[in-house]
Nucleic acid binder design. Structure first.
Lengths: 184, 184
DNA sequence: CCGTGATGTTAGTGATGACTCACAACCATG
DNA sequence: CATGGTTGTGAGTCATCACTAACATCACGG
């Protein structure tokens, strides 16, 4: 048998674990996901996961931070791609169409929000989300109504992803989706 | 000692349990809430809870249904209270100001959404939420953009409730709150 | 006043899950 | 080849939790 054990550096392992944890937490949430399931997905033993991350909560917090970072990146990419002089609000709306391609990211956002019952999670989420909002405000100079409307659209997309109706042809789902990101 | 055991009918108990379960699930979610905690809050033994609801999931589903019903009621109340001839969209916006007074309701919505990983929950949530959206569409006759915008505002409020920033004076939170429901 | 059905509890059980300890295999360097 | 740091695991521990079986207590009709 050639089940040769692929040995990796601790940093590489941490990266793999974080990837697996992200998907698992996005699907089943913090309490609903077992560390064993994550370890299995990576292909390592569960004790090793604990050595590399210390605690289930620390791993979750790392996933939350990554989630906020990636959201930020999606936004920045939208801004960077815009025509000079165009309305930045439209550029960021375009960014949503990109985000939709990653339901895992949207679901992870939801999981981060509901996990805000925990103070440590809450601190990270508030901080990260606050930065996102301020970045939008600074980039667009839009009114509170416009900004809130934009952010709210993102939240609606998150919820549609959680309900798994982003691709659905249920009439109400199609209506919301198209009302949210524009026609087909 | 006058710890006289208050005996109730099964239906009254079910009601009490549902109340307690609603608050508990809203706070900690389906997996994060123990049936023991709910039983304790009601002041009954945990096995009795199981006799009256059969299963933790059935209890959760009952709480989800109640959540959707109450959301519907808030909306209907807004519509019923409007001036004849006024824009129904504005009436329902006013309904949000009422909903904000009940963070438990908003948080329970979030918990229902993330619990959509489970097919049974998903079915109930999709059905209930679909009805809400169609009711709004019928009552307002508004465009998909308007409807989605309205629904999205509700989602943003849910998230702000989950983050516990509905009363916060963090600048970004205040911006979103006011951008969402209008100035003070 | 006694039986019968409804309301309620005590004391489990089996499974799961976060986390630990001791040990093993591997690799680099002197 | 010895040594020591790094990568990794097997086999637990202890708590929690959904759910059950059996028994207790009350109220009420005949």
């Amino acid at each position: 048998m050639t089940t040769e054990t692929v040995r990796r550096t601790a940093d590489e392992r941490r990266e793999e674990i974080l990837d697996a944890a992200f998907e698992a937490f996005a699907q089943s949430g913090f309490v609903g996901t077992s560390t064993e399931a994550i370890a299995d997905a990576v292909g390592i033993s569960q004790p090793y996961l604990f050595r590399l991350f210390g605690t289930k909560k620390q791993l979750f917090l790392a996933a939350v931070e990554r989630c906020l970072e990636q959201t930020h990146e999606v936004l920045e990419a939208g801004l960077a791609a815009q025509e000079p002089g165009a309305d930045p609000m439209i550029a960021m709306g375009e960014a949503y169409r990109v985000a939709i391609e990653r339901p895992g990211l949207l679901r992870m956002q939801m999981q981060a929000y509901v996990a805000c019952d925990d103070p440590d999670v809450r601190a990270v989420v508030r901080d990260g989300y606050g930065r996102l909002v301020m970045r939008i405000a600074a980039a667009t100079g839009a009114s509170p109504q416009e900004i809130a409307g934009f952010v709210a659209s993102g939240m609606l997309l998150n919820v549609l992803a959680a309900m798994d109706v982003l691709e659905s042809d249920l009439p109400w789902a199609a209506l919301l989706r198209e009302g949210c990101i524009g026609g087909p």
